[in-house]
Design a protein around this nucleic acid. Structure first.
Lengths: 242, 242
DNA sequence: CGCGCGCTTGATCAGCATCAATTCGCGTGG
DNA sequence: CCACGCGAATTGATGCTGATCAAGCGCGCG
């Protein structure tokens, strides 16, 4: 598995080919991580950050509240580069592949290129997604809450080519899903059944099939604007030709 | 009111005096904003960002869910500098004073200094606070939720010298508080009464008095680590003497 | 084959929303 | 000066959403 495919995620389309090469050369080889492994524990000093290449990685706060869910192309703990420790655990959900970037390497990269801005942008997108999670948990109830999360995941996965026809792999248990939705596993199960019975989506065998994308978005009050997809793919403020 | 007092908030202690001067010179004069004014509406193109000098500013998502609450020293919509529009409204809660920074000025600043990193750091702190809000709303119930929020506000205000002896001004109505806590105004009222009757805190006339800080933190499961206060005030990675 | 984990379903209970009404504080105009 | 109006605070009554407790099922794996 080559990491370069995902280097261009999260607005890094704006980078020049030279910058992308610089970025790729600074990362480690791809490393495999087994499912359920805790990659970073909260509070521990960290000296490197990870780019997800394959699989799903989550960030978990106190009482196992999931606060973030990362897909291939996401840097998981760029926070650690600037803050030197994390305020949450980082856990692989299924089997995962990552590349790591030592903070020393990132520091050198920052000196030599506009990559600092790319990283900042990535952090801003994380923050925007966090805000959507606050809204989801704070204002939507059961079915709508799940619908909103599935819409988000679909949109994000589609941006990196990992969703097709409303269908994508999602190696979460219903307990994991509950941790993200802030619902018990029991209630998550009932919510999934309700969505299935309404013909909106099925989630079985680690595979999501969205049957009615429009209705799902409506139920979940989902507006993808906060993912800034079009902006990121649009030509940047940088002059087009040099 | 001079803005320089708050330029050093949010980890900007790390900046050199020259950088601080550069920053101060790039901002507008202090502008007064009346209470309840919407400063930026979601989706609108933005071409400047704001630093809060006095008062409270919040960010509100769909259905009036508050997703963020900003105090003097916070940049409210630095997001807009990189993303060019916001995924939420920005609203003054009480009467507020701000200085604005045009994105052109910020771009020039970025070129000339390490300010990009300071801004990035500020965004990372916002994200960390967002995560704490997800935990609070997702895992804590009524009283604990309110306790956690009051602890956060106290800690943040103390960092910029706006809280003393567990007491600080907070110009929110109970409805506003409910929007932040994701509770109805009615239930917010009952929760406040419960906290008062337990001798933990009183909130009256826009003034918070924390009577038992330790017990409040315990009830709210509050650990201030996510605010990175000590890290920000500690000497930075930058060489101490030049 | 049996154990464990995840999924599923039923029954009961608690936290909070909702609806409704009253009171309080305060600025405004008669 | 007082009546009025309006937003905010407060309190009561009722109902819904989702937690909790409990039990059974399916399936992969040692």
């Amino acid at each position: 598995m080559n990491s370069s495919k995902f280097l261009a995620g999260r607005g890094r389309e704006r980078l020049t080919p030279e910058e992308l090469i610089l970025l790729e050369d600074s990362g480690s080889d791809v490393q495999a991580v087994e499912a359920r492994r805790t990659l970073v524990r909260r509070g521990e000093p960290v000296c490197s950050s990870m780019l997800v290449i394959d699989g799903f990685v989550c960030r978990a706060a106190t009482d196992n509240q999931m606060v973030s869910l990362h897909i291939p192309g996401d840097f998981v703990d760029l926070d650690g580069f600037k803050l030197k420790r994390l305020d949450h655990d980082v856990v692989a959900i299924g089997p995962v592949k990552v590349t790591t970037y030592s903070h020393d390497a990132l520091a050198i990269l920052s000196e030599r290129s506009r990559l600092t801005e790319a990283f900042w942008l990535s952090s801003l997108l994380d923050a925007a997604i966090h805000r959507a999670w606050i809204f989801r948990i704070g204002r939507l109830e059961g079915e709508a809450r799940a619908a909103h999360l599935f819409c988000e995941l679909h949109a994000r996965l589609e941006m990196v080519g990992l969703a097709e026809d409303g269908s994508f792999g999602l190696p979460l248990t219903q307990l994991d899903l509950g941790a993200a939705l802030s619902l018990t596993a029991v209630h998550t199960n009932r919510v999934l059944r309700a969505l299935r019975e309404q013909g909106l989506l099925t989630f079985r065998n680690r595979q999501v099939e969205i049957h009615d994308r429009k209705a799902l978005a409506k139920l979940g009050n989902f507006d993808a604007a906060y993912l800034y997809a079009s902006d990121l793919n649009a030509p940047s403020g940088r002059p087009l030709d040099g």
